[in-house]
Simulated scan of single mutants.
Amino acid sequence: MVLFTTKFVQRASLFVSFGGLVTTFVTTFLPLWKTMNSDLNEMENWYEGLWHMCIYTEEVGIHCKAFDSFLALPPDTFAGRVLMCISIATGILGVAAAFFGLRGVEIGASRERMKRNLLILGGVFVVVSGVTTLAAVSFMAYVMVVKFWDDDRPEVMPGWEYGEAMFSAWFAGLLLVVGGSFLFVAVCMGDHEVKLQTEMIARCQEQRPRSLHYRKTEII
Rank of each mutant, 00 (worst) to 15 (best):
V145H: 13
F125I: 00
A135H: 01
M144C: 06
K147G: 03
S138K: 08
R116W: 11
D151Q: 10
Y162A: 03
S129L: 02
Y142T: 12
P154C: 06
V146S: 08
V131S: 09
S110Y: 09
L134H: 08
L119E: 02
T132R: 03
L121H: 14
G163D: 05
G163P: 10
R153P: 00
M157F: 13
D150M: 08
L121C: 14
M157T: 12
L119N: 08
L119K: 07
Y162H: 13
A135Q: 04
K115A: 00
D151S: 11
M157K: 13
E155N: 11
A135Y: 07
S129R: 00
R113C: 10
S129W: 06
V124I: 09
V146R: 10
D150C: 12
M144L: 11
S129P: 01
F125R: 00
G130T: 02
A136C: 06
P158L: 05
P154I: 01
G163Y: 07
G130D: 05
S138M: 11
M157L: 13
L119V: 04
V124E: 01
V145N: 03
V137M: 04
S110A: 13
F125M: 02
D152S: 13
D151T: 10
V126Y: 08
G159L: 07
L118Q: 01
V124C: 01
A135C: 04
L134P: 09
S138A: 13
E155C: 09
A136M: 07
V131Y: 15
L134D: 10
T132L: 14
V145P: 11
L118N: 01
F148Y: 11
V127F: 10
I120A: 04
V143W: 15
G163M: 03
L119C: 05
F148V: 06
L118W: 06
D150W: 06
M157W: 13
V127G: 01
